[in-house]
């Protein structure tokens, strides 16, 4: 493993261990200087990047749990009084949610609590029985499954979705590949979506939702099939999007990230109230 590859791997591992960007840059720069001056192979000096990153994170007393928060901007999504019934059963009962630019809202709840239904209503793919959704800006939506074309490869997906957003072919491919790289994924040219693993297909799904920089992102359990590293990469991306002023709604049943979001909408409690 040469210097550059080892340093790139270290950067990714530090991020996965929750080390903030400033400190990551500092640690990587310091390691690069040492390697340049000593001329020794990085594996001999520091060992594998995973182990070194773990050691750095441990020395800091664990991952940085609270990324810096910024002042939220104008309201981007306002759902008011959303009610939905299925076959006489009330799934959503007068649900309200307001998300501003620069905020992350997590929609949580048990299976069947109506999380995906609520997100589909927010995306305008499903009508509620009552209630309204006001959106300021463009919408990006990542469904729980589907959302890709079996016989197209990732680049062709980028071009197809990008054209809808007004992107040229080249810009769509470039943006799509940049989004994929942020999830530590290099889309293989010519590999059709049906040949991608479940987790990789979800990466594609997520990158497509983000294409064209929509102002409001609706993500329906987008991390299904992700390994731990990609899962952490995903949350780092979500925080980065928030810091870039996006309003994000994430449907999740994993509660260990809830201290890192701004709003929690618990539909379990809401469902119990309806019952």
């Amino acid at each position: 493993m040469n210097h550059d590859a080892w340093l790139a791997a270290l950067t990714g591992e530090l991020r996965r261990h929750g080390v903030g960007p400033d400190l990551t840059g500092h640690v990587v720069a310091e390691a690069a200087t040492h390697l340049a001056e000593s001329g020794e192979p990085p594996l001999a000096v520091f060992g594998p990047p995973q182990a070194y990153a773990r050691a750095v994170a441990d020395s800091l007393g664990g991952p940085d749990q609270r990324p810096p928060r910024r002042r939220p901007g104008p309201v981007r999504l306002a759902a008011r009084g959303i009610t939905k019934r299925y076959r006489g059963r009330t799934v959503l009962d007068r649900v309200d949610l307001t998300v501003r630019a620069g905020e992350i809202a997590a929609v949580v709840g048990a299976n069947g609590a109506g999380k995906s239904t609520f997100l589909r209503i927010c995306a305008g793919l499903l009508s509620p029985d009552t209630g309204t959704v006001q959106v300021d800006g463009a919408l990006g939506y990542c469904p729980q499954d589907g959302g890709t074309a079996e016989f197209l490869d990732p680049d062709e997906h980028f071009v197809l979705v990008g054209a809808g957003r007004g992107l040229s072919r080249r810009a769509a491919r470039r943006n799509g590949r940049a989004g994929a790289a942020a999830l530590d994924w290099t889309p293989p040219a010519g590999t059709q979506a049906r040949h991608l693993s479940g987790g990789t297909r979800q990466k594609l799904n997520l990158v497509l939702a983000r294409l064209g920089e929509p102002d409001v992102l609706l993500l329906d359990e987008p991390y299904q099939g992700f390994d731990r590293g990609t899962y952490l990469d995903f949350w780092h991306e979500v925080w980065r999007w928030r810091d870039a002023g996006k309003a994000i709604v994430v449907v999740t049943h994993l509660l260990n990230q809830l201290d890192r979001v701004d709003i929690v909408l618990d539909l379990t409690a809401q469902g119990e109230r309806a019952a």
């Binding site: 463009a138 939506y141 589907g146 959302g147 890709t148 074309a149 979705v161 809808g164 294409l211 064209g212």
Partner: peptide, 15 residues
Amino acid sequence: SAARGIEPRLRLSGY
């Protein structure tokens, strides 16, 4: 039938 899965996404993407 195959297009039904991706069409809502395309609609939201500006088509």
